[in-house]
Amino acid sequence: MKRSLSSFARLACATLAVSALAALNGCSSPTPLFLSDGRATTLVQCPARSDSCAQQATASCGGAFDVVRQSTENGTLSLIYACRAK
């Protein structure tokens, strides 16, 4: 009886661990959306009154990028951009 309880506890812990991993996977960054020309888009967020979003996009693209959409809410700028083709 003691052995089966131990096995049950291990199974329960393993199931819990797998469930936790699945839940964390849902919190990871979303799959990039693509523009009609095939370019992937990226979302960055930064303080609304700074240029760090543009700096992040420039660094990520290695140069020029196109703004797909931007919005400001609660002092945070959300910028969706796509790198320009080289």
Rank of each mutant, 00 (worst) to 15 (best):
L11A: 14
R3F: 09
Q55L: 13
S78Q: 08
S60H: 13
V68T: 07
A17Y: 06
K86N: 03
C13L: 15
R69L: 01
T42W: 03
F34P: 05
F65N: 01
F34S: 11
S60K: 12
Y81I: 05
C13N: 14
S6N: 09
T31E: 07
A40H: 04
E73Q: 15
G62N: 06
A57M: 02
T15Q: 11
Q56M: 12
A54E: 05
C46S: 14
A9R: 02
M1H: 09
T58I: 06
A54G: 07
T31H: 04
L35D: 13
F34T: 14
A23S: 06
R49K: 08
A20V: 12
L33S: 13
P30D: 08
C53I: 04
F8I: 13
K86H: 07
K86E: 08
M1F: 11
L43A: 07
Q45M: 11
D66W: 04
K86Q: 08
P30C: 00
S7M: 10
S50M: 07
C27R: 08
S7W: 13
L5H: 15
N25H: 09
N74D: 11
I80N: 01
G63Q: 05
S52G: 04
A82S: 15
T58P: 00
T58H: 08
P30L: 09
S50T: 10
V18H: 05
F65A: 02
V68E: 00
R3D: 05
P30Y: 03
A20F: 07
V67Y: 01
T31A: 10
C13E: 08
V44T: 10
A12R: 07
A82P: 01
A57Q: 03
R39N: 04
A22L: 10
F8G: 10
C27Y: 09
V68W: 05
T76N: 03
L5N: 12
A59H: 03
L16H: 09
C61Q: 05
A20I: 02
S78F: 15
C61S: 04
C53Q: 01
G26S: 11
Q56S: 05
M1K: 10
S7Q: 12
A23I: 09
Q70R: 07
D51M: 04
R3P: 06
S52E: 14
A23Y: 07
S52H: 12
G62Y: 08
F8K: 07
F34C: 04
A40K: 00
V44H: 00
I80V: 11
C53H: 06
S60T: 05
L79T: 01
V68G: 00
G38C: 04
A14M: 12
L11D: 15
F8P: 00
G26I: 06
R49L: 08
A40Q: 01
P32K: 03
P47S: 15
A9S: 04
G26L: 14
F65H: 06
C53M: 09
T15D: 10
A59W: 02
K86F: 14
L21S: 11
D51A: 02
V44M: 02
S29K: 08
V68A: 03
T15S: 15
A9L: 13
F34M: 09
R49C: 02
S78C: 06
L21F: 11
F34A: 14
